[in-house]
Design a protein around this nucleic acid. Structure first.
Lengths: 183, 183
DNA sequence: TTGACTTGGCTAACAGTGTTAGCTAGACTC
DNA sequence: GAGTCTAGCTAACACTGTTAGCCAAGTCAA
């Protein structure tokens, strides 16, 4: 039933994924075609299928890798921070701005979880849960806010002169504190 | 320099856009190809180009239409509401759940603003600005939160059992009130 | 050393995508 | 009636992901 257990990638598969990463980051998702990827590797597109079952798994490998990187970056940002949520938000935004195409790939479609490295998604999410003291509702609201700000900015959806730093601050202030129980 | 002024669509063009809307809503973005659209209209794909310059404009027409619809729905939701931001958020979420493929089309890529009906985007945004009393920073933070919750839900990114109503409430409570100036 | 098997390339091909060029039947207009 | 415009058509191009089948080179066991 599961389409394919995520076998540990061979060295050659890892080379291919690395080339795909470079291609994606340099030229965006539209440029990440099997033929262009093969070109970059000096081989023909069908040869890629000797190492990876299909394009979905290639993308899943990129996403797994990105989850591991964000897990490290976010944990470092939260560690010892005075305002963990603010620090985490800054790290989140930095990652997305530094890797816009990768960030889009990670978020814009339903996740092929069965193809990801087990636990990668959870490891990336852990620093946020820590930052809000385990309050899952607050964590989800904060993630939604951060993702919304990020993707709307990446997609150029805010007006040109908009002060996005101010909007980030406004949202984080609102979400930073515990909510008092309703009287 | 501008790729093409958005000429007022001919009646036939409007029929084509209507068929595209139905196709999109029923079967999703992947199904919205020029050939499948032509099939539904009983013609061949190249004939569509007699009425619309390209697929981008077709999508832009769908997005314009959706902006007009949301402008009406959101204005109605805010009008006379006790908690305008909460009412607006409910209307926003309802629209996205009722038209998930259309919502994705509207938000997932940079907007081809030059192809949209002039003012459509602004009309759709106005109710939010009203709901937050003209505070642009709060409006952007609220939009980001709502879009984040919406698209992460549509993409199945929250864990299966997650109480999203609670996360929505948590975020809206935080964003509903003015922020007191920092002491 | 030889024979068998595996690895990792290759070409050719298929069905699908958006799009363009060029043809034409019919309707409309002077 | 002649000319022109409209809205369809077929054929084709350059792409996309993917499969089938071939083959040279390397590995390994008898």
């Amino acid at each position: 039933m599961a389409s394919s257990a995520p076998e540990p990638p061979s060295p050659r598969a890892r080379e291919i994924v690395a080339a795909a990463r470079a291609l994606l980051e340099e030229q965006g998702a539209d440029a990440l075609s099997m033929r262009r990827l093969a070109d970059r590797l000096g081989i023909r597109a069908p040869s890629i299928y000797k190492h990876l079952p299909d394009k979905r798994s290639l993308e899943a490998a990129l996403i797994s890798e990105a989850f591991e990187e964000t897990a490290v970056a976010f944990a470092a940002a939260v560690e010892g921070a005075e305002e963990p949520l603010v620090a985490l938000a800054a790290a989140y935004r930095d990652f997305a701005r530094g890797h816009p195409h990768l960030y889009r790939l990670m978020t814009e479609r339903p996740l092929a979880r069965e193809l990801l490295a087990p636990g990668a998604e959870a490891r990336a999410a852990q620093p946020l849960l820590d930052a809000v003291g385990g309050d899952a509702d607050r964590a989800r609201a904060a993630w939604a806010f951060a993702h919304g700000m990020t993707i709307l900015e990446l997609n150029g959806r805010f007006p040109p002169g908009a002060d996005l730093d101010a909007a980030w601050r406004r949202g984080l202030e609102a979400l930073a504190s515990e909510v008092e129980p309703q009287p």
